[in-house]
């Protein structure tokens, strides 16, 4: 009996050029490397995969979109049952702080402990357990925010960023405050790019974010120590 796995793709969203309606083959999560980087979703997956390939030149880390807030614990449960998990030496988790960096850090620690992994003592660090487990809370372990916050930090000095300040001040004066604000800023900045319809991860693949900007330094250091 055929075991081909096909799953219905979501209906294509308006303006979303990367998806199509109908059935599509959904690749399965499989452990392929000994170092795993768990990120929140597919956009983050694309962002970090691009960073690893284009900027960091690291081929030994596999990115998996399994660190979503509601899913991390059960994804760890399934991941550690994979027959190849015995070969994993490092497990890094990157999650957004949103409105509470410390709470986000503790939440990830809790999920790791629940599955008998030793969590690190601090943000951007690794434990000495097996596998080594590390946590990075975007944007810097202290501020509220997300990946988009860091991306906007990296382009803060750009001309377009200056224009955006005027734009959002204008909106604010009229009582329009988009939430989450950093996502809105990032999408507005990306609208100034040659191809204006890209999401954060797609923009990384297209080379729009300046990966060599100092704003990303602590993040890259964390990934290098995975």
């Amino acid at each position: 009996m055929s075991t081909d796995e096909t799953a219905p793709a979501p209906v294509a969203e308006e303006g979303d050029s990367t998806r199509r309606a109908g059935y599509t083959k959904t690749p399965k999560f499989k452990i392929e490397k000994t170092k795993l980087l768990l990120v929140e979703g597919k956009d983050e997956d694309l962002f970090f995969t691009s960073a690893l390939e284009k900027h960091l030149g690291i081929g030994s880390i596999q990115v998996l979109p399994l660190a979503g807030k509601e899913q991390l614990s059960r994804n760890l449960a399934a991941l550690k049952r994979d027959p190849k998990f015995v070969e994993v030496t490092s497990l890094a988790v990157i999650r957004d702080a949103d409105t509470a960096a410390d709470a986000a850090f503790q939440s990830v620690c809790g999920a790791l402990r629940r599955h008998d992994f030793m969590p690190p003592d601090a943000h951007a660090a690794f434990s000495s357990g097996w596998p080594r487990a590390g946590i990075f809370i975007m944007p810097d372990g202290q501020r509220n925010g997300m990946l988009e916050t860091l991306c906007m930090d990296s382009v803060a000095g750009s001309v377009e960023a200056g224009c955006l300040r005027c734009y959002f001040n204008c909106l604010g004066a009229r009582g329009v405050i988009p939430r989450p604000f950093d996502k809105a800023r990032a999408q507005a900045w990306l609208a100034s790019r040659p191809q204006p319809d890209k999401r954060v991860g797609e923009a990384a693949a297209a080379g729009y974010w300046p990966f060599n900007n100092a704003a990303f330094d602590s993040l890259w250091n964390f990934i290098r120590s995975t």
């Binding site: 799953a7 959904t26 690749p27 399965k28 999560f29 499989k30 399994l66 899913q71 614990s73 059960r74 994804n75 449960a77 399934a78 991941l79 049952r81 994979d82």
Partner: peptide, 12 residues
Amino acid sequence: EALQAVLESNFE
């Protein structure tokens, strides 16, 4: 918990 992840995510 692991079964829920298998159903919701796309684990092999």
